[in-house]
């Protein structure tokens, strides 16, 4: 492999790990590789657009028995506006429910969850030291949920007050830093709520009669964690 071949490969995929023999002897390609990897981090950040809150289309009455013909495309219909209105009603409802915690006033579950994420800086350390199984069982007792380490390396587990209830606050180590998880068995929501602030993003997912909040850095891809959590958490309340 020569420099042209290597640069072509690394330019097409900065994760390319071939050509080690050439790379070890070529300073120019080492520099190009570093440059492409740094560029990819920038590209990743730029692609991570803010995502509007999920608004489910009205699915009632949609024919699921015949999917052969494509419907003509239509503008967002009145049904969708009803969904938007329902979301607003839900937000107002949640707004009434959420009050004061640690002297701070919160208008919504999303706001309280995001604020709590940074409430305990010790939770957000990058570390490879996992919490013990005993500690995990203590924070996530069997009468709340069945939870194991399959979702990732759990490095923090404490019980914290959210929405007037003591809930499990966990942190697992993601590819771009700590990922906060809050198990909210008492917070039933009708649809997912997107979480976004300057440095982080996430979602509160409806899970049975409760929900789960997942928040990571803006670069973090949370889908795998979401999938793992949906499989590893089973409410027992």
């Amino acid at each position: 492999m020569n420099c042209d071949d290597y640069k072509q490969a690394i330019g097409a995929d900065p994760r390319f790990d071939g050509g080690a023999g050439h790379l070890s002897d070529c300073q120019s390609c080492q520099e190009y590789r570093r440059e492409m990897q740094a560029l990819d981090l920038q590209i990743g950040r730029a692609l991570a657009l803010d995502v509007p809150e999920l608004v489910m289309p009205s699915l009632d009455g949609v024919d699921t028995g015949n999917v052969v013909a494509l419907e003509p495309r239509r503008r967002i219909a009145m049904k969708t506006w009803y969904s938007v209105a329902a979301t607003v009603v839900l937000a107002v409802f949640i707004g009434f429910r959420f009050g004061v915690d640690h002297g701070q006033q919160f208008d919504s579950l999303a706001e309280e969850v995001l604020a709590h994420t940074t409430h305990e800086p010790a939770a957000l350390q990058v570390t490879d030291k996992k919490v013990s199984d005993d500690k995990l069982r203590q924070v996530v007792p069997a009468n709340i949920a069945a939870m194991d380490h399959s979702a990732g390396l759990i490095t923090f587990a404490e019980t914290c007050p959210i929405g007037g209830h003591d809930v499990p606050h966990l942190v697992i180590q993601g590819e771009h830093g700590p990922i906060t998880i809050m198990l909210l068995p008492h917070e039933k929501i009708s649809e997912a709520i997107s979480l976004n602030d300057e440095n982080s993003h996430g979602v509160i997912l409806p899970v049975g009669d409760g929900s789960i909040a997942i928040i990571g850095s803006r670069e973090e891809k949370l889908e795998e964690v979401q999938k793992q959590l949906l499989q590893s958490v089973t409410w027992e309340t």
Binding site: L54, L59, T64, S194, L205, P206, L230
Partner: peptide, 23 residues
């Protein structure tokens, strides 16, 4: 059960769907 399955899938992948569509 069908609706629950759909909701879970959409909740997980809604962000990807939007960002892909947007770009």
């Amino acid at each position: 059960s069908r609706r629950k399955r759909f909701d879970q899938i959409v909740a997980v992948y809604h962000q990807d769907m939007y960002r892909y569509a947007a770009w």
